[in-house]
Simulated scan of single mutants.
Amino acid sequence: MTHASPYRSGALSGAPFTALFQEVKDAGLLALRPGYYAWRLALNVALCGAGLVAFLLLGDSWWQLLVAAYLALCSVQCAFMGHDAGHKAMFRDRRAATAVGLIHLNLVNGISYGWWVGHHNRHHSHPNHIDRDPDIARRTAVFHAKQYATRNARQRFIVRHQAVLFFVLLVLEAYKIQKTAVLAVARGAVRRPLLEGSLLLAHVVLFLGAVFLVLPPLTAVAFLLVHQALTGVYLGLVFAPNHKGMAVREGEEEALDWLERQVLTSRNVRPSPLTDFLYGGLNYQIEHHLFPAMPQRNLGRCRKIVRRYCTVHGLPYRELGFAASYREVAVFLHEVSAPMRADGRAGRHRRAA
């Protein structure tokens, strides 16, 4: 179910982004919210602290696997703070933002802040662009038929069944991001390779050291696997409904202006207090892509303005409930891979003949 854009340059000449930007700015929604982020940072410290206390009190127990699951939630909540710092939604000052990002991504999650900022900024500039969006390029799954030719035999098997395996393989998502980040730091592809590398090493030493000091080897390995797998699943489930199944683009960027480019490629997950917390505000994906530096707290109010603006100017605004958003992603992945499954069956028939 690909929501291909019917719009081309000039089709929304009556809906300039500057008008929407001015309305949002006049509403005060681009102003920083230091009090909110102070509360969120304190909440994360409390959540992580509670997990650490539970871990130390339980000691040698298989109940520690529940603690591992809980700490996976804490890890992603910390990653949300690194994300907002990277967008300057928390601080405009680069040094303060970098400090928060390094702590929450490198030290807490083992992810390079410098690598992530560059990677994520390219994604924001070219969402769902086959050749320019790095979030599409680093996936085994395909979002356009032209990508299939670049996949090897193992990857093609995954692609043929990607409607299911995309979600199953999210257990490896945290590992894949961490591996990519470590390689980027090792290559010197970040501004502070020594600092970032030291923090990544500190993450490994502190995390593994604590787990293997408190738990016997078998329980420790199980703890690590559960934490790593659930962190990956949580991250993947937050990111999956944002763009998958929306308009996929290729060719020149001038075909769409900024407003069209962001709205037509993004999908919101219908908000609620629980959804806002679990998604770290990224369920307001349309608003976040239009205004990346907007504090998380303001996205809900911005949603009302953006929805009204899109309705007035005839621009599709895609928002679904929690379950429906994942169902739409799965249907899209199934439809895109249908020719690949047919090709695989034809190949087996030829070999059998």
Rank of each mutant, 00 (worst) to 15 (best):
T2N: 15
S5T: 02
P6E: 06
S9I: 12
G10N: 02
L12W: 08
L20H: 00
Q22L: 14
E23P: 15
A27Q: 02
L32N: 14
G35P: 08
Y37I: 04
Y37T: 04
W39C: 13
A42V: 10
L47P: 13
G51H: 01
L52G: 13
L52Q: 14
A54K: 11
G59F: 04
S61F: 08
L65I: 09
A68F: 00
A68V: 01
A68T: 00
A69G: 12
L71T: 11
S75K: 14
S75P: 14
S75W: 12
C78P: 09
G82I: 00
D84C: 06
F91G: 02
D93M: 03
D93A: 01
A99E: 05
G101C: 05
L102M: 07
H104S: 03
G114W: 01
N128E: 08
H129W: 05
D135W: 10
T140P: 11
A141M: 10
V142F: 13
H144E: 10
T150A: 15
R151P: 09
R154V: 15
F157T: 10
I158L: 11
L170A: 13
E173N: 15
E173K: 15
K176Y: 15
K179R: 13
V182K: 06
G188H: 08
P193S: 10
L195I: 12
G197S: 11
L201F: 12
H203G: 06
V204Q: 14
F207G: 14
L215T: 05
P217L: 08
V221P: 11
V221E: 11
A222S: 03
A222P: 01
V226E: 09
A229K: 04
A229I: 03
G232Q: 09
G236L: 03
L237E: 05
N242D: 10
N242R: 04
H243D: 02
V248E: 01
E253W: 10
E253R: 08
E254G: 10
D257Y: 08
R267H: 09
N268I: 01
P273K: 08
L274F: 14
L278P: 04
Y279L: 09
G281V: 00
L282Q: 01
N283H: 07
I286C: 06
F291E: 01
F291Q: 00
A293P: 05
P295I: 05
N298C: 07
L299F: 02
L299S: 00
R301M: 03
K304N: 10
I305H: 03
Y309I: 01
T311S: 14
T311C: 13
H313I: 03
G314M: 03
P316L: 00
P316K: 00
Y317R: 02
R318M: 13
L320T: 12
G321K: 10
L333E: 01
H334T: 13
E335C: 08
A338S: 13
M340S: 14
A342V: 06
A342E: 05
A346S: 15
R348P: 10
H349T: 15
